[in-house]
Amino acid sequence: MEVSPIPGGVVVFGCYLGAVGLVPALALFALVPLAGLLFWLAWLGITFLAARFGMATIRIHISPRQLVARGGTIFPWEVRLPLDAGVRLYRISTPLMRLLGCCLVRVTTPSGGVWLPAITQMDARAIARFLGGEGSV
């Protein structure tokens, strides 16, 4: 099965990342308003680039024996995890994520793990069923 982050989910993560930058931006704004504004705009720009070229490009392919995740445009990466034993799945969601029908999934194995950001609740349940069928989740 193949899953990918959904646009709504990427927006949610963009909002969260943007909010993280808001705190130092406000502190800077209190000291030098122009610097605070510029910092905030730069942060949003970086967040947009990270979401566009990092998170939004992730493709996950799961087969009975292994999970392959590929992502990144500027810094391409590929993770291959065997699903033979000791696989655990964590599904995380916040009210904002639930509102937009997405969630964050973490799959761990004895030899590492991978974050599956911003996938639909339905996809997450399908992955859980798929891995659960192997008797290891």
Partner: peptide, 28 residues
Amino acid sequence: TPQAGYLLYQTPYNLPYGRCNLRICLPA
């Protein structure tokens, strides 16, 4: 072990030559 995990990663400098770095994560 067949349970090793693999991470292939590239940099913009590596991309034109089709090369990458490989990290092998053994269990534990």
